[in-house]
Amino acid sequence: MSSTVLLIGGCALVTAVIKAVGPVALGGRELPERFTGVIALMAPALLAALVVTAALANGDRLAVGPDTAGVAVGGLVAWRTGSIIGCVIVAAAVTALLRAAA
C-alpha cells in the first residue's frame, strides 16, 4: 500500500511542479517582443510533435497503422472545410472502419 501512495504522490508532485514552473517564472509581466515571437511559434512546434508521436509511433517504435490513415483523412477534412469537429469525427470513423475491415 505504501508504494502505491508513493507512486500516486510522486506522480502528482512532479506533474504539479512541472505545470507551475512557467506560470510562476513568467507571469504578470511584459515580455520582450522577441520572446513573444518564440511563444507564438511554440504551438506549431508542439502540435506537430504531438501529431507525429500520437499518429506515427507506437511507444518508441515508428508505426504506421489505421490511426495514421484516419488522422490523415481527418487532416484533409480540416484543410478543405476548416472544421475541427469534422476532422476529429472523420479520423475516428476511418480508423474504426479500417480496424473492423482488418
Binding site: 504551438a43 506549431p44 502540435l47 506537430a48 504531438l50 501529431v51 500520437a54 499518429a55 489505421p66 490511426d67 484516419g70 488522422v71 481527418g74 487532416g75 480540416a78 484543410w79 476548416g82 472544421s83 475541427i84 476532422c87 476529429v88 472523420v90 479520423a91 475516428a92 470513423a93 476511418v94 480508423t95 474504426a96 472502419l97 480496424r99
Partner: peptide
C-alpha cells in the same frame, strides 16, 4: 478509433 481523436485534433489546430 478513439485513439485517433487527439492526433486529429492537434492536426486540425496545426493546419489552422
Amino acid at each position: 478509433g478513439l485513439d485517433a481523436i487527439y492526433p486529429a485534433f492537434f492536426l486540425a489546430l496545426l493546419l489552422i
